[in-house]
């Protein structure tokens, strides 16, 4: 069984445990949109995350997982914090790409505020410029496992 099938088995097991599939909301904090296109390509029929029920929703109030891209620019800082507060608990934040991790090529500028860790708590970092769609799916899987731990932690 190759890597891809193992990944798929893990995702379906996690979805069954959770009871429903995770819904994802995507936030762009000033990126060049390379990572955003890879996120959407992860939902098209080639890599196909939609068959597990993972889908992009239009409002953060329905979301379980937040995907954030971009070096956090000055004018988008407020939006990112606002969206973080609007998402209901329990939630998981995944930082996609090299920009929210450490700034990438924009690390020294008067207008960017990378890394994302300084402003909202982050659970998973996915490096790459841009990361492959399979890598983003793997990051979402790791986020799902953390989400399950958080839900179990609440039940106790």
């Amino acid at each position: 069984m190759n890597e891809r099938e193992m990944l798929e088995k893990r995702i379906s097991k996690l979805c069954k445990y959770l009871g429903r599939s995770p819904w994802v909301f995507h936030v762009n904090s000033g990126s060049c949109n390379g990572c955003d296109i890879e996120i959407i390509a992860a939902l098209t029929p080639r890599y196909d995350a939609e068959r597990f029920g993972v889908k992009l929703v239009g409002t953060p109030r329905h979301a379980d997982i937040l995907l954030v891209t971009g070096p956090v620019t000055d004018q988008s800082l407020e939006r990112v914090k606002l969206i973080y507060e609007q998402t209901p608990d329990p939630k998981v934040v995944v930082a996609v790409g090299a920009c929210p991790t450490g700034g990438s090529v924009f690390f020294e500028s008067p207008f960017t505020n990378a890394p994302l860790d300084k402003h909202i708590p982050v659970d998973v970092f996915v490096p790459g410029c841009p990361p492959r769609p399979e890598a983003i799916l793997y990051g979402v899987v790791l986020g799902l496992e953390k989400l399950i731990k958080k839900i179990e932690g609440e039940k106790e």
Partner: peptide, 20 residues
């Protein structure tokens, strides 16, 4: 004015460094 090279440009405190 951000692109000027004299005293009216960006001063050192305004640069935010993410840590190279």
């Amino acid at each position: 004015y951000p692109l000027r090279k004299d005293e009216k440009g960006i001063s050192d405190e305004m640069i935010k460094n993410a840590g190279h």
